[in-house]
């Protein structure tokens, strides 16, 4: 399976899982955001460039099922994924907790950014005191799932020819 096809395949799986399985799994009123996590994981694995593109596509998929203006999640996710990719490129040593921390901070940032951008385009109802709490909770549940998603994205975004050459 080609690289792009694998990413699209994973995106579709994440979208369906987000709309079904993870729609029922709630912690308080908060649920994991798989498509956002995928955008962040893509940036961790593939860097700013690829992360932004995949973040944008994941955002568009998210927007398809929301009532908010179309393109709002795409904008927020691509900006955050770009930021994650840029920061990731300057990390010189790897540790198991870095993807977890990145997923936590990036997911929380994306939720806040989404709400702020929403307020700019007339969706001011998102900016309320509970926003920070929701953002942190989404960040926490996404961080718990981050190792699996990063692994999946590594599979999807690693060129087979490149990896066999490395071997």
């Amino acid at each position: 399976m080609g690289l792009r096809l694998r990413v699209l395949f994973l995106m579709l799986i994440a979208c369906v899982a987000h709309q079904t399985l993870f729609a029922a799994v709630r912690w308080g009123d908060v649920r994991p955001h798989l498509l956002l996590l995928m955008a962040v994981s893509a940036a961790i694995v593939g860097g700013a460039d690829r992360g932004a593109v995949i973040g944008f596509l994941c955002g568009l998929l998210t927007d398809l099922f929301l009532q908010t203006p179309f393109g709002l999640s795409a904008l927020a996710f691509s900006l955050v994924a770009f930021g994650v990719g840029s920061v990731q490129s300057s990390v010189i040593r790897s540790a198991w907790w870095i993807p977890l921390l990145t997923a936590l901070v990036a997911s929380a940032t994306a939720i806040v950014l989404y709400a702020l951008l929403g307020a700019i385009v007339g969706q001011s109802q998102f900016v309320r005191p509970v926003l920070l709490l929701v953002a942190l909770a989404v960040g926490a549940v996404n961080a718990a799932l981050a190792p699996f998603m990063v692994k999946a994205m590594s599979w999807a975004m690693t060129d087979q020819a490149e990896s066999s050459f490395a071997r």
């Binding site: 932004a52 944008f56 955002g59 393109g71 795409a74 904008l75 691509s78």
Partner: peptide
């Protein structure tokens, strides 16, 4: 990407 998103919005 930002320009595309703004256009869609």
């Amino acid at each position: 990407l930002v320009l595309t998103a703004v256009t869609l919005l």
